[in-house]
Design a protein around this nucleic acid. Structure first.
Lengths: 140, 140
DNA sequence: GTGTTTGCAAAGTGTTTGCAATTTA
DNA sequence: TAAATTGCAAACACTTTGCAAACAC
């Protein structure tokens, strides 16, 4: 994706989400949605922005990640209690989590079938089923 | 379970885990493993201990929870980025998570079948598959 | 006695917040 | 110009750590 397309794509996403296309949000959206799907934390995205010479505060990165999540541009993935992880793939899918690296990898939902779930507790309904396949590196 | 059995059970668990049965660990083990399975956070267990007139510091509760987890007496469940949750049920099973309450509920593994998982990333092997069924309260 | 565990208070980590200054529509 | 957004620094919630005193074996 070239610069112009990236820009057009970013502004379109922000418009659709009814978020003002500020310089900071545009830059973050371009980093996030340039190509392919990504998993980021506030810290990694902030670092990436600074490396791309985008002046943006960490607080604004947090703010943007939450707004993007609230408007469906991102999805939050809970894998460890330490840091929040955000995924640009908002479609139904699951994750591998490589413990040593703290790295996520998507598993297409099409592959995975979950059967035999009991009915949810009385007075509740299922909002989402999260599957985290925790993997560890093996010698060799 | 009566007091004597609770005591015997706790000391047996600690011995098996090769942890010294200190007053604090004994008290926490009795609270945790008295009957049925439980989900606790450091905070809830600490509060419970104080209510039972057991003098124990929060730091020691954290310490105990981690030692218990490392020795297989407990299992950690990652459901939200805020706090660590520990489960006395260390057998293979899954969870309902009631979002409004932050409450966990076990799903027996026997029920649940997961099929179609792709092979794990090269050089890794599956350590565990965590399923969190996130449910929300519905009106009525 | 020797090594382990505890408790405290301090430090640490990741995240949120209050608010004045800036930017967007 | 009215409303939204930013950046900073302070506050926050949860967790870990350093270390002297207490404890278990």
């Amino acid at each position: 994706m070239n610069d112009h397309r990236r820009y057009a794509h970013a502004i379109e996403l922000l418009r659709a989400a009814k978020l003002r296309p500020t310089r900071q949000r545009m830059a973050l959206a371009r980093l996030l949605f340039a190509s392919g799907h990504r998993h980021v934390t506030a810290e990694t995205l902030h670092t990436e922005a600074l490396e791309a010479h985008v002046r943006v505060s960490l607080a604004t990165v947090y703010n943007a990640l939450h707004r993007f999540t609230a408007t469906g541009l991102l999805r939050e993935v809970v894998v460890d209690g330490q840091r929040s992880c955000f995924d640009t793939n908002t479609t139904d899918h699951q994750h591998f989590f490589i413990e040593e690296e703290g790295q996520l990898q998507d598993i297409p939902a099409a592959n995975v079938q979950i059967t035999g779930l009991p009915t949810p507790p009385p007075g509740t309904s299922i909002r989402r089923v999260d599957v985290i396949v925790r993997v560890a590196k093996v010698p060799g």
